[in-house]
């Protein structure tokens, strides 16, 4: 039986749940968990003042029941176990997480999986800006793990990303893979302009029906049917992200860039 956290009443003040992870709660009693201090606006308050806590935390599962749009840092720094959010979640979901699984049924805010190092995040709705990206002023975004988003994403997805996989079933905003260092981003919908701007290494696989406006600092290599594309498709199918891999089996155009940076990045574009 999982531990269940639900809001006592809707709040317009942001709450920060950073540190409230399955590992921390696992060996605590409900009383101890309720006494945990969380940031409510700029004040530290006990969790019990804003949330009801029930269930059994020992099995490493947490459930956030309700709309947590203004709750930030859910699953931040988690290392194991699983978190399920029944509706929306705020910013910094899975920030710096190292392991475990997060599943959000609704939409999430900015910085989803920012600087994460391992584990898997699934979002059934859309996500904001800087998915898997670096925090402001930081030198690296995500360095491992997988982020799977069924909806759309905002701008700067994969900003300074170093390793890992981000897959987006919907559309992506501007500056996809901005200053990316390595890793893989797959977008099955359309992609807005400036994809790959400043990328040094890494792979963008853009399989939307319309091609994005590309930067002139990318050079066309030609058409390719590399096995790595169907391999990626099969992997996404194996983790339950997509049902059909046919789009990954088609030959794609391959471009190298960004030659304003190192130029070892690559962009696969469907025709």
């Amino acid at each position: 039986m999982a531990i269940c956290v639900s809001l006592r009443s809707a709040s317009t003040i942001p709450i920060d749940f950073t540190g409230l992870t399955p590992k921390w709660t696992q060996d605590k009693s409900l009383g101890e968990i309720e006494k945990r201090k969380v940031l409510h606006g700029r004040h530290q308050i006990r969790l019990a003042e804003i949330c009801r806590v029930s269930g059994d935390p020992s099995d490493g599962r947490m459930e956030f029941d309700g709309d947590f749009s203004l709750a930030h840092g859910i699953g931040a720094a988690m290392t194991l176990g699983s978190i399920h959010v029944s509706s929306n979640a705020g910013c910094n979901v899975g920030l710096g997480m190292q392991g475990g699984k997060i599943h959000v049924k609704g939409a999430v805010g900015d910085f989803l999986g920012s600087e994460m190092r391992g584990g898997t995040i699934r979002v059934d709705g859309s996500a904001g800006n800087s998915v898997g990206g670096a925090q402001n002023g930081s030198r690296r975004g995500m360095t491992g793990g997988t982020i799977l988003i069924q909806g759309n994403v905002g701008d700067h997805v994969g900003h300074l990303m170093r390793r890992g996989l981000i897959a987006v079933r919907g559309n992506a905003g501007k500056f996809l893979g901005y200053n990316m260092l390595a890793g893989t981003i797959v977008v099955l919908g359309t992609c807005n302009s400036y994809a790959g701007a400043g990328m040094k290494r890494g792979t963008l696989i853009l399989l939307g029906k319309s091609q994005p406006v590309l930067l002139p600092t990318f050079r066309l290599a030609g058409k390719t049917a590399s096995p790595v594309l169907p391999l990626t498709g099969r992997h996404l199918k194996s983790v339950g992200f997509i049902e059909n891999t046919a789009r990954f089996a088609e030959p794609c155009e391959l471009l190298h860039g960004d030659f304003l940076a190192l130029g070892k990045g690559e962009l696969f574009l469907s025709n």
């Binding site: 997988t146 390793r163 996989l165 893989t184 792979t203 790595v228 391999l231 990626t232 194996s238 690559e266």
Partner: peptide, 8 residues
């Protein structure tokens, strides 16, 4: 010129 891809 080799590249690696990590999946899972």
């Amino acid at each position: 010129f080799q590249k690696s891809k990590v999946l899972g």
